[in-house]
C-alpha cells in the first residue's frame, strides 16, 4: 500500500507492506537509524518519535497508521540548531554511557520540558517513566534534564 509520511520536514512516499512497522519505515525506508529498537513491546522508549507533536512509540504503530502525518525523529529534534537544550545538557554533563537510550530520552524530555516550565526531580522521573536507560541508573540523566529545564528555550 502507498503511504506518504513527512519526516523532519521531508516527504517520504513509499509502497509498503501493510504490516510494516513505523519504526522500520523510519529506519529502513527513510534511512533514519537514530530511532532505535530496544524491546518491540512499547516498554523501553528507544523508538520514541513525535507524531503530529506528540510522543509515540514507533514500534507499536504501523507505517500505514502514520500515513499523512508529520513525524519528528531525533535527527530533526534540534530544529536546525546543532543541539537543543536537552541535548546540550546531556552532552555537557557527560551523563550518558552507551547512548542507546539517548534518542528516545531526548525526544521525550524535550517534549516534556516544552510543556512544563519548572519541573522538579520527581516530575522528571515520572516523565521518563516510559524510557529505559540500563547504564546510568538514571541519576546523571535526570540531573541533566533538570539542568536543561533551567535553560531558556
Amino acid at each position: 500500500m502507498k503511504v506518504k509520511i513527512n519526516v523532519n520536514g521531508e516527504d517520504f512516499a513509499s509502497d509498503v507492506e501493510p504490516r510494516l512497522l513505523l519504526v522500520d519505515f523510519l529506519r529502513d525506508t527513510a534511512g533514519l537509524t537514530g530511532t532505535h529498537v530496544g524491546c518491540e513491546t512499547g516498554s523501553c522508549g528507544s523508538c520514541t518519535v513525535l507524531l503530529d507533536g506528540r510522543p509515540v512509540k514507533s514500534c507499536l504503530m504501523l507505517a500505514a497508521q502514520a500515513d499523512g502525518s508529520r513525524i519528528i525523529t531525533i535527527e530533526g529534534i534540534s530544529k536546525g540548531e546543532s543541539m537543543n537544550r536537552v541535548q546540550k545538557s546531556l552532552s555537557e554533563s557527560k551523563a550518558l554511557q552507551c547512548g542507546f537510550c539517548a534518542p528516545g530520552i531526548v525526544i521525550t524530555a524535550s517534549w516534556f520540558l516544552d510543556k512544563n516550565e519548572n519541573p522538579d526531580e520527581g516530575e522528571i522521573r515520572e516523565a521518563l517513566s516510559g524510557n529505559i536507560c540500563r547504564c546510568t541508573g538514571y541519576q546523571p540523566v535526570v540531573d541533566a534534564v533538570l539542568k536543561a529545564s533551567k535553560e531558556v528555550k
Binding site: 533514519l32 537509524t33 537514530g34 530511532t35 525523529t73 531525533i74 535527527e75 534540534s78 543541539m83 541535548q87 546531556l90 552532552s91 555537557e92 557527560k94 550518558l96 552507551c98 547512548g99 542507546f100 539517548a102 534518542p103 531526548v106
Partner: peptide, 12 residues
Amino acid sequence: EYTDRLIKGHGK
C-alpha cells in the same frame, strides 16, 4: 564529546 554523535542520533 564522543556521545554527541549518539545524542544526535548519529550512532552506528
